Amino acid sequence: MRHIFSWDGNSRSEANHWRDEYVQWYTMCMALKYVRRNEQMAIVNATDSTFVNEVKDGVVLVDFWAPWCGPCKMIAPVLEEVDRELGDKVKIVKVNVDDNPETAGKYGVMSIPTLFVFKNGEVVDKTVGFQPKESLVGLLSKHL
């Protein structure tokens, strides 16, 4: 009686079959992992033309950033953690200040990263610079 993963070494085609089965299984698992990871990521990139619609409902954390900014790069994974923890209660929106100067100017962004908390379209809180996850969760919790 043969077990499902046993191979007696005599059949090259049987070995190729099991290799192909494993590759197919592994590919499916990696695709599922990718889909699940992206389902959790609800961070939205807004532009000057979409910004108002993105912040009009509920509690929204807006990150004004730029790709060349070191602290902005440091806070990106923190925002992903906040999204995983509070994603069902808080929307996170990122605005690239280089590509969207109109919105950054409207809100007086002078340093980055600058994070605003919006509630139903109105600014209710603001912080500047890198913030740890606990600080951001505390900031957002005040407005939930």
Rank of each mutant, 00 (worst) to 15 (best):
2 R>Q: 09
3 H>N: 10
3 H>E: 14
8 D>K: 11
9 G>A: 10
9 G>E: 14
10 N>I: 08
12 R>F: 08
17 H>C: 14
23 V>P: 03
23 V>T: 08
24 Q>M: 13
25 W>V: 06
27 T>M: 01
27 T>I: 00
27 T>C: 06
28 M>I: 10
29 C>P: 00
30 M>C: 09
31 A>I: 07
31 A>T: 04
32 L>I: 02
33 K>G: 05
36 R>P: 01
36 R>N: 12
37 R>I: 04
39 E>C: 05
40 Q>I: 11
45 N>E: 12
45 N>F: 12
50 T>R: 02
50 T>D: 05
51 F>K: 02
53 N>K: 13
56 K>L: 01
56 K>A: 06
58 G>H: 04
63 D>G: 04
63 D>H: 00
64 F>Y: 12
65 W>M: 09
67 P>K: 08
68 W>M: 14
70 G>F: 09
73 K>F: 11
75 I>E: 03
76 A>M: 13
79 L>Y: 00
82 V>N: 04
84 R>F: 07
87 G>K: 02
89 K>P: 04
90 V>D: 00
91 K>Q: 13
92 I>T: 02
93 V>E: 01
93 V>A: 03
94 K>S: 07
94 K>V: 02
97 V>A: 03
98 D>L: 14
99 D>Q: 12
100 N>W: 00
102 E>I: 06
104 A>R: 00
104 A>P: 06
106 K>P: 02
107 Y>E: 07
108 G>L: 08
111 S>V: 12
113 P>A: 05
113 P>W: 02
117 V>Y: 01
119 K>S: 02
124 V>Y: 10
124 V>Q: 06
125 D>Y: 07
125 D>I: 08
126 K>E: 14
127 T>C: 13
129 G>Q: 10
132 P>C: 08
133 K>M: 12
133 K>L: 11
138 G>N: 14
143 H>D: 10
144 L>M: 14
